[in-house]
Design a protein around this nucleic acid. Structure first.
Lengths: 228, 228
DNA sequence: GGCGTGCGTCACAGATTTGTAACATTCGCA
DNA sequence: TGCGAATGTTACAAATCTGTGACGCACGCC
């Protein structure tokens, strides 16, 4: 549930500084010492945000940013550029490369974390702990509350996580196996049919408000959350 | 714990005057020379109050105020407008923009600080060192007293801090670990279950007045203080 | 030193949640 | 229409989590 941040930075000291502060702010941190390493990390597990040093040995940060913007899979990935320069042309280049924000070295850890939060809020509100809503059905991760038109709704822990996952990944089918991975956690050894039961429980809880119809069965495949 | 105030003012002399007086009154001050800079500052770290000059080069103060009122995140942010004009239509515009108060130039530093305090008292009592209250349950940090409808209530030190934290952070779930960090202090080595016991003690103290129901258990996650 | 208060930990009971199996129903297809 | 597979529904026992009372320790005060 905590956002994962990939730090691509070649100077060990700065990398460490970034990692410590981000971790302390509740983020999960993955590190890479070069653009190439960064690419690998992204390939193996998509982070929620990338902090990218402008200057890197080998492939530069700008060049990696451009690459990420071209790939379908990483097009929406928020990027924060880390730069020692403050020249205007760099900002323009950076904007063209598609960075969401800048932090110039030297930076205060507080500012950095704040900018990360700000970018997440803009690009992926739910990762920043803000409410997700679909037609009156709202789920707020930070208050851990589900409301229907302002009215509170009680959900068990698992149903809450299940609904949260659905609401943050609407309009997409997920197999029972995928749901087990995403909602229960990787590599749990649980019967797939168990998902059905929790779907049932979730539907039962949503029933009075009619929102149970959003939880759609895709026969032979799995389940999907309808957003509109 | 000291409130942070963002000053958005383009004239360096006035900015300085504001900053000095606010600092002297115990506030932390962040400065911005334009509406754009102000926006950035707010994005990176939400202040507790904004002092906004009416006339600014580029985007005007009124326009920024409107923008802040539209954004979910800054809707509740108290705003004090700083204006040289005293015309009626300006006040109306300002009210529409959602300012909490006005200070007309030239202003006395004393008056300014007083207005800042007043607005904070109204919008965020605990930042002004005043009592926080929810439906008859009041906690006063400066007198270190808790009252229910005026009646005194005895709380142990830990319960007091716990309740204070809850009342200043209502409507949000906190895990036992977070509560330990926030109420007991960072990096203490205490069993998480200890939190339960103090929750219990707090509830017991609140029980006679019925306010114990505000301390809600969020199964599998932690606790939450209900404000309404 | 004796005493009271506050605090952290533990143990146990009760409540809630959860996974599974069993049975019922629906769906798609021939 | 009839059949098999997929899904819906229910009940229940196990597992987990939380509430609560009790206990011992530490500290400050007299």
């Amino acid at each position: 549930m905590n956002p994962t941040i990939l730090v691509v930075e070649d100077e060990p000291a700065i990398q460490e500084l970034l990692a410590i502060n981000l971790k302390h702010a509740g983020f999960l941190v993955v590190r890479a010492g070069s653009a190439e390493e960064g690419e690998n990390a992204i390939r193996s597990a998509l982070p929620d945000l990338v902090i990218l040093d402008w200057m890197l040995p080998g492939q530069s940060g700008v060049s990696l940013a451009k690459k990420l913007r071209q790939d379908e899979r990483t097009r929406e990935l928020p990027i924060i550029m880390l730069t020692a320069r403050v020249h205007e042309e760099d900002k323009i280049q950076g904007l063209e490369a598609g960075a969401d924000d800048y932090v110039t070295k030297p930076f205060s850890p507080k500012e950095l974390v704040a900018r990360v939060r700000a970018v997440l809020r803009r690009r992926a509100p739910h990762l920043a702990g803000e409410a997700v809503e679909f037609g009156g059905l709202a789920l707020n991760p930070s208050t851990h509350r589900v409301t229907v038109n302002g009215q509170n709704l009680d959900l068990g822990p698992t149903e809450f996580r299940l609904l949260f996952f659905f609401m943050t990944h609407p309009e997409r089918v997920y197999s029972r196996a995928q749901l087990l991975d995403e909602v229960w956690g990787d590599h749990v050894f649980i019967e797939e049919r168990t998902v059905d039961v929790h779907i049932r429980r979730l539907r039962a809880a949503l029933e009075p408000s009619g929102h149970h119809e959003r939880v759609e069965t895709v026969r032979g495949t799995g389940y999907r959350f309808r957003g509109n």
